[in-house]
Design a protein around this nucleic acid. Sequence first.
DNA 1: GAGTGGTCTAGACCACGCG
DNA 2: GCGTGGTCTAGACCACTCA
Lengths: 260, 260
Amino acid sequence: MSSLPHSADTSATAATAAATPAFSPLYQQIKGLILQGLQQGEWKPGEAIPSEVELAARFRVSQGTVRKAIDELAAENLLVRRQGKGTFVATHAEQQVQYRFLKLRPDMGDARTEGPAQRTILDCRRTRASAEVARALALRSGDAVVQARRILSFAGTPTILEDIWLPGQAFKGLTAEQLASYQGPTYAMLELEFGVRMVRAEEKIRAVLPDAEQAELLQVSTGTPLLSVERISYTYNDLPMELRRGLYRTDTHHYHNTLS
Amino acid sequence: MSSLPHSADTSATAATAAATPAFSPLYQQIKGLILQGLQQGEWKPGEAIPSEVELAARFRVSQGTVRKAIDELAAENLLVRRQGKGTFVATHAEQQVQYRFLKLRPDMGDARTEGPAQRTILDCRRTRASAEVARALALRSGDAVVQARRILSFAGTPTILEDIWLPGQAFKGLTAEQLASYQGPTYAMLELEFGVRMVRAEEKIRAVLPDAEQAELLQVSTGTPLLSVERISYTYNDLPMELRRGLYRTDTHHYHNTLS
DNA sequence: GAGTGGTCTAGACCACGCG
DNA sequence: GCGTGGTCTAGACCACTCA
């Protein structure tokens, strides 16, 4: 390694290379190398990566170039810089912002003073992917998946009903106990227990009415409109690793979003 | 001007300055100065700002420092860099991404192949702010506001019903004709006609049932769940300049969001 | 005080757009 | 061919953390 040519080099994988000159700046290549280290678990969530000067020496580039690569990874929430201490692999645990992917907020009050939600696991079993689930997770119909259903309650009020599907291969041995007992975000548990870090997610939101079962679980009438939130979460290589379908009560909470 | 001390200087406004040392890097001060130019209309939306070397000379700093300031403003979507051409003031018009703040997408099909929405203005009048509207727009109850109601239809299907409130002072003379006749995003029209640029917005989303009037306007039954989207849009100084309450049909569309 | 990230500079060269 | 933004370097110094 460490023979980084300063010329553009797009020999990343087997050549599907078309006629694109594909100039790629050095710092992008460095970024790719760091990303590779993250994917391969060279540095684990919460740990520090080598210092800028160290990486600069390893890759035979200037510190400024490493800096720009890290800047972008930090902007994408893959790394976290802490002045005087170092640069750390981002994690869903011990992050000041708990529940990074949950955009539901209480209508009043100081955001998260309400404390963490109470979780009730209703179901957790291994099964086979339906066509729909398979498509979302880039699997084949019939592939093994872990399916779970749970309720999140705030101040004793059931507020979120979630169905979760995870690819069975990556999450062998996931149990209802693990889902129930872990304190903190589920994504943190998946990092710790299975080494799978969710990096990004996409949500599709609709307004729906619950069926009888859903209504009962959320303790609302079947005429109560609810938010349907379908989330697909991705790990490092835009690889989908979770399908989650949530029903949110919005009588005391709302989905908050910032546009810019 | 142009006496930029290299030492930290937080004398921005009247001193509420507490005991904070408040070190402020040079590039942040430059960023503030550029922002000031944007607010004061020194460069208008769509226009180019001076080149990096020119700004560096004006502010007596190195090009790299100006660069970092511009980088941040570009990341905040206030400026747009175009290699070989210059750096431009961002605008809601002529931006490849029309409807930057509208997150509703058709369930199938190529995103915006459906073309722009048909607009129907139902109402547009000057009135006085209710307590609620006043709070959202940082006005006093009874202050003048412009209120409008309109319907957006896609492929002939009424899909969005919007009520819009704008501070009357900044939008004197806004007419229903202007709202109806302008091709393209309303925000682009507000930029052109009133020099007010919306920079950022916050949305609160709920699931609701329409009342009889709303249902009729959207051609759905009163039992059809709809997305309620309350948006407050801000101009440069985190100054709220628009309150918008939308009802979205989600039978053929969904609200799309990316988490990271 | 040593080590880390953060700022600032000055200069060289490259890619892009346009006349 | 010129001007623009984009990359890369090397070095100095500053702010923060921790032992």
